[in-house]
Design a protein around this nucleic acid. Structure first.
Length: 303
DNA sequence: AACGACTACAACCGCAGGATG
DNA sequence: GCATCCTGCGGTTGTAGTCGT
């Protein structure tokens, strides 16, 4: 009997016919009674599988095939920092996105980050690896949560393509600022600094605030030196140009004054020609332990 | 062109918690 | 109180596409 039941349940990719049956069921009864789909013999799928298929793929107004826009990424990063891995809750702030989307996005982002951090720990002698090339290509800031949220998002390079998929935030950037955030006392969150996430209403791009080291964090002398250098405009200016081959002919794009020159224009000064700071040298100078305090973010269950 | 590494995505599983009968 | 169903989460796997060598 047990074996028979198991045989009855279909798994794997969904066929169009199955999707149609599921859609018809939802049209008739609404998005509920998932288990009845199987008990009625309509589909040989579990109710759970049916629900997942509907929620993640068949639900109307889904942004399937669209990469996360910079704004969406910013929302995920900010909300994740605020409420933890509540993907479904975060997804409610992103119309057209499912919890699975958000989870996958975060997961691949974490993997990317882990790999880059791991690469940053590799000694120079092993610099012939592919990871070394990746490391040199993308400044570590791209994937470190706090810095990333501050400076720019890794999906900025997708900006052009993602414009085709208009997000509600693109249409109304003010909307996200007006959305009620969950009733959480931010000050209770370890390491969370609300000042790090200041939404710039005009541009929609988070205004970069240089993160201050937490008092209880212990940095190596090298890290201290680097943190001190963050106050140096020329040091930050290295981030003004990014090697982004994905952009084709616009192989380099400038983050420009709006990000790094909010008040004065001092950041626009040409960098020291004698001591040019390049993303490569910048990365190479970063001690591996510098980001130890950043990853991983604590989940609310651990508070 | 072939191959391997990497990425994004879809889908599954196990578990937990809430709602309902 | 218990069983069942639904929902959500974290983790994982499989696969197709992309990219670099």
């Amino acid at each position: 009997m047990e074996g028979f039941k198991k045989e009855e349940i279909r798994k794997g990719p969904w066929k169009e016919e199955e999707d149609e049956v599921l859609i018809n069921h939802v049209k008739k009864y609404g998005p509920r009674d998932w288990s009845s789909i199987r008990s009625k013999g309509l589909l040989h799928r579990t109710g759970k599988s049916c629900r997942l298929r509907w929620v993640n793929k068949l639900r109307p107004n889904l942004k399937s095939g669209c990469k996360f826009s910079a704004e969406e990424e910013r929302v995920v990063i900010d909300l994740q920092a605020e409420i933890g891995n509540k993907w479904a809750r975060i997804a409610t702030y992103l119309p057209g996105r499912t919890d699975n989307d958000v989870k996958n996005f975060w997961s691949s982002r974490q993997k990317r980050l882990a790999r880059i951090l791991q690469a940053s720990g590799t000694p120079p002698s092993s610099s012939n690896s592919k990871q070394q090339k990746i490391k040199n290509k993308y400044p570590v800031f791209l994937d470190v949560p706090t810095f990333e949220a501050l400076m720019f998002s890794s999906s900025m390079e997708e900006e052009v393509s993602s414009k085709a998929c208009s997000s509600s935030y693109s249409e109304n950037p003010e909307q996200i600022r007006m959305m009620p955030l969950p009733p959480l006392v931010k000050s209770e969150l370890p390491g969370y600094d609300a000042n790090l996430f200041h939404y710039e209403p005009m541009s929609g791009i988070p205004f970069p605030q240089i993160p201050q080291p937490q008092p209880d964090l212990v940095f190596s002398p090298e890290s201290h030196e680097l943190l001190a250098r963050l106050d140096d405009p020329y040091f930050l200016n290295v981030l003004g140009t990014i090697d982004a081959p994905e952009l084709g002919d616009t192989a380099q794009f400038s983050l420009g004054p709006p990000l790094f020159d909010p008040v004065t224009s001092c950041m626009n000064t040409p960098r020291d020609a004698k001591n040019p700071v390049t993303p490569d040298t910048l990365f190479d100078e970063l001690p591996p332990d510098m980001f130890d305090h950043i990853e991983p973010l604590p989940s609310p269950s651990e508070w």
